[in-house]
Design a protein around this nucleic acid. Structure first.
Lengths: 358, 358
DNA sequence: CTGTTAGCGCATTCAG
DNA sequence: CTGAATGCGCTAACAG
């Protein structure tokens, strides 16, 4: 594998300069360099300059790994695990997290679990091994076992968007149940009696909660939920599209579809568009849409659409702030808390679509 | 700030167990633990079990910082800087990067520069300090100064999507010039003579290149580019929307708009929609659209639309692969190379919009 | 103001 | 097969 040489060359031929290199170059002791680097207090101006010049000359950067080895030192690292970065919703959450952590000069090691519990566990373990001081996780569901050691060691953890049973930590959630219930009620009040549900598996927190809201609205109205119209586990736009096609091909297709997240909604819309073209009919007039999460170009949907909206970036920010307050020791040993961010419902009617009035 | 205690408590009350803790717990020497952790060769089965039990009991995780301090050891960390995570395009790129690096069990420290050169420089410096073995950067433009020290130290760097003058490194790009030229020619061939350009600042690589293509098509056709219709620097959907509104409010508005990236395109579409509603006319019939980058729900745009498409995820994957080949020493000291990914043009005509046939 | 000593957690080297 | 010594880069704590 390696070259013919005995001592297998490293990928980086030249290794990074150390504090000793700088010291040698400047003709001072490593300690003086260290002092200059950490603010330059109690160091003469002359030394300061010499050291600074050497630092520049060598392109020296303090080795954070070595630094964080010292007792009492912080790594400044936070581990973040999301389930699917391709969902603009989570990209927004991550951006919000980065915004707040960046202000404190902390960095993000980041990984995508792809809704895979094993991968999530691997990432969490790895991040802790890398001395991440805290974790923000969108749990994929399954269990909380992988988080128990971290808990015991006092590594602060915040759940974002979802929560996992079996471990008691801070969480930032959306009022899934209420949002789903209200928007479903809207459909029921409009007279819909065959409403499809497309969402995450029941093992996923939001999958459970949003379905619960969906169900509650039905119960309150005395309308049965139709099992045939409940579809779960579509992970991406493509899968959601296939499922929507199935629903639309039923002998008695739904008159409304509730998409419990962003990716499902996009898939449904694409399917309506496709089927409409195939059959030469306006499917958006036949199927009422409702769902969770905003998306680009909502206004172009040529039919009635109700969206349960909340601020994904704000959710990320809040999660980061919760974590920071623990990291700064403000809330150590205080009980965990869950923040439910408010959501609101936005409805756009068919008449507002651009071509309807053309 | 801190509590009343003398020794200010750390955020994590209990600190992470070390290899010595495990050794003590198992009644062996740290060295035996180390051996077990790194494969368990030359260790008796009995010891193995004891150590493994202790590891589990204590929830021990190897300290990667300490580990990567040892000579010859890799951190397994790669630093990634993107300009704007909120753009689904870059989210996709990042996901592609993560996919490839994850296969090699490497992790990503990640930051968003928000097109700010200073921030980009800070992130790069920080990542190198954290012992990132390599970097993937979407350069915000400005200069390459911040990258020269890394270069000297042999930290492999790959540019993604954009390139920066002044430093000679691998890059994965899109054939911006050709794509922009061809799609612009399409508009010119359709007879458009007032085509607006909305893109990045000229200081941004793609801003320069995509404008170049736009200009070339005009030159080839002998049609002048109208300076009034060239708008640059809109960073997000909102800003792009405002600019589009301005263009549409001109005494002689453009008959076509070329959006040089995803965020501009979305802003333009929203503006057309809004103006259409205000004026009660179908703006999508009056303004021909073209641009770079796919987006969700393209099919709902109720007018002619041409998109220069390329695979963002594949771009990310390729960047990661280039980096890996350097990290694995396969291409050390080989000249840098630039890969231009192919793009294709997809055109969707108005007649294909869902409501047009309703 | 400057330098020396020592040790953070780990694994390579060498002894046993 | 197991353990003791050593040093990676850095900085508190203590000289001088």
């Amino acid at each position: 594998m390696a070259g013919p040489e005995e001592k297998h060359e490293n990928a980086s031929p030249r290794s990074l300069p150390t504090i000793s290199d700088v010291a040698r170059h400047a003709g001072v002791s490593p300690m003086t360099v260290s002092r200059v680097l950490s603010g330059g207090h109690h160091v003469s101006a002359a030394m300061q300059r010499k050291v600074e010049n050497s630092v520049r000359a060598l392109g020296y950067r303090r080795n954070e790994s070595a630094r964080s080895l010292r007792p009492g030192h912080r790594s400044g690292l936070v581990g973040v695990v999301v389930t699917n970065l391709t969902n603009p919703y989570y990209a927004e959450v991550l951006d919000g997290i980065g915004e707040i952590l960046g202000e404190e000069n902390r960095r993000v090691v980041f990984g995508t679990s792809h809704e895979d519990f094993e991968e999530e566990a691997r990432l969490v373990a790895d991040f802790v091994g890398r001395q991440a001081e805290g974790l923000i996780v969108v749990p994929s569901g399954g269990s909380a076992e992988h988080l128990l050691p971290e808990q015991r060691h006092g590594v602060p953890l915040v759940f974002a968007s979802r929560r996992q049973e079996g471990v008691d930590v801070d969480a930032v959630l959306v009022d899934d149940v209420r949002g789903a219930e209200e928007v479903t009620r809207l459909l029921l009040d409009e007279g819909h009696r065959r409403i499809a549900f497309m969402g995450n598996a029941l093992s996923v927190f939001t999958g459970q909660r949003r379905y619960e809201g969906f169900e509650r609205a039905h119960l309150a109205k005395g309308v049965p939920v139709l099992p045939d119209l409940v579809r779960r586990g579509q992970q991406d736009v493509h899968a959601a599209g296939l499922t929507a096609h199935e629903l639309l091909a039923l002998p008695e297709p739904p008159t409304a579809i509730f998409s419990a997240n962003n990716r499902n909604m996009i898939g449904v819309i694409k399917a309506l568009y496709d089927v409409g073209r195939e059959r030469g009919v306006d499917m958006f007039a036949r199927v009422r849409l409702a769902g969770f999460d905003t998306f680009d170009l909502e206004e172009l949907v040529p039919g009635d659409l109700s969206i349960v909206t909340h601020d994904a970036r704000e959710l990320g920010r809040t999660a980061a702030e919760l974590l920071l307050s623990r990291l700064q020791g403000k809330r150590v040993d205080r009980p965990s808390r869950t923040i439910e961010l408010p959501s609101s419902i936005r409805t756009r009617r068919r008449g507002e679509a651009p071509l309807a009035q053309a």
